[in-house]
Design a protein around this nucleic acid. Structure first.
Lengths: 227, 227
DNA sequence: TTTCCTCAGATTGTCAACACTTTGGCTGTG
DNA sequence: CACAGCCAAAGTGTTGACAATCTGAGGAAA
């Protein structure tokens, strides 16, 4: 439902880690805008922390791909480019496709129950707000998130959930790519889960790839129209 | 041919970065064995560096997935598990398959020329050492490396070349997974490049995925035999 | 003997000060 | 006016010291 779900924030593990989580949120949601130059002393003052702890947080953000650092020059928030967004979708297509295939292979009753329950919840929401899709993005996110978890491949889970999805959310927040395909996306989600339930990994992968590629094409169209 | 190619070591950018590169090499090649506990003061003394700089290097290694750190406890080198190796191949299958598809779509004359030249070089090497395949792993590495470069997807390139491939090399060095399929692998490489040359992304992807899955199956068989 | 507690040693997290590099404006010259 | 070179201010990289935390050995009690 919410960001904290992605990486449990156990109350105050270490200062650097809390700074990392906080800054990550502000960058993703755009409070620190894309392209912004980061000043270590300034941020350190703001959080009443030392530069050392702050630097640790910055470095994690760098390896998350949210920051770019150049030696002796400093850090700046990455730019959001069309190319970057489209690239992201291509990688997601590959990885989440594989996640579906694996989820279908290892399908466990618990995972299936959870997925079904989630879909029911989404359906209910959608009926309430017939067509207005701006609640769907988080729901859509949930969907993809849980499918990946069901793949049981730790490397895949880490790559997507602890890495790429932050970039996804950053683009969503700041370029506002709320898909206007709510109803259709919901149907697609259903078909994917059915394939997983049937243990048909090949089909599940194909459907997920098509699902993501449809979003990508949608965005590509919107972008070429604007420019 | 060699590690330095993966990330250009411009002479002394920053101490922390040099420490990072050095340690990364030692972990990948097993001089610092898998599972080893890292002592910050000890390593700092060894390199005549301060703990701060060393910690920066350690954190990068953590986000590379070569180290695991727990707050107030310390860092240790990751364990190499069968599950981890198999997971890695599944992710590679997905990503490198996509890389092939993209390489076929954007196929440029330069990339193709380079790929062809590289294959010719490999063939020559292989004839010299007919069958003995322990030079092939690096060649195989080169092959996959360059295919990914040709995809032109920066996120994909970064994920594979600056992240996953270090893990691949770590497994290769320490579990010695030199494929005994040298000749066959070479033929498969050839077919993949032909598909890319023909602009047939779908086929290129399929061939690459099959190629990687064959390696994975090979390893899986070897592992179940040993245990 | 086993279990729990205590405490010293070692290790990690955090900080403030120092050294070096970059940046942007200023001066002086062509 | 344009341009190269210099200078000060700000920023980053690096260091050593201090504070908080964990680990493990040793001893006391059940």
């Amino acid at each position: 439902m919410e960001g904290g779900q992605l990486q449990t924030i156990e109350t105050s593990q270490s200062l650097a880690e809390r700074l990392y989580v906080t800054l990550r949120g502000e960058i993703v949601e755009g409070q620190i805008g894309a392209g912004t130059k980061i000043s270590e002393p300034e941020l350190a003052r703001r959080f009443n922390a030392s530069r050392g702890s702050l630097r640790e947080a910055l470095m994690r953000l760098e390896s998350l791909g949210l920051l770019e650092r150049r030696v002796n020059v400093g850090a700046r928030v990455v730019d959001l480019t069309e190319r970057g967004l489209l690239d992201l979708y291509e990688v997601r297509e590959a990885l989440e496709g594989m996640a579906c295939r694996l989820a279908a292979q290892h399908r466990s009753d618990e995972d299936l129950a959870e997925l079904r329950q989630m879909l029911a919840h989404h359906e209910q929401q959608e009926e309430l707000q017939a067509g207005q899709a701006y609640f769907q993005p988080e729901g859509d996110f949930d969907f993809h998130f849980r499918i990946v978890q069901a793949s049981k491949n730790d490397l895949l889970i880490d790559t997507l959930c602890n890495r790429l999805y932050f970039r996804v959310r950053m683009y969503r927040y700041q370029l506002g790519m709320a898909s206007p395909r709510a109803k259709r996306a919901f149907r697609e989600h259903n078909h994917i889960i059915e394939a997983i339930e049937a243990g048909d990994g090949e089909l599940a992968e194909l459907l997920m790839r098509r699902h993501i590629r449809a979003s990508r094409n949608n965005i590509e169209k919107k972008l070429t129209k604007e420019t």
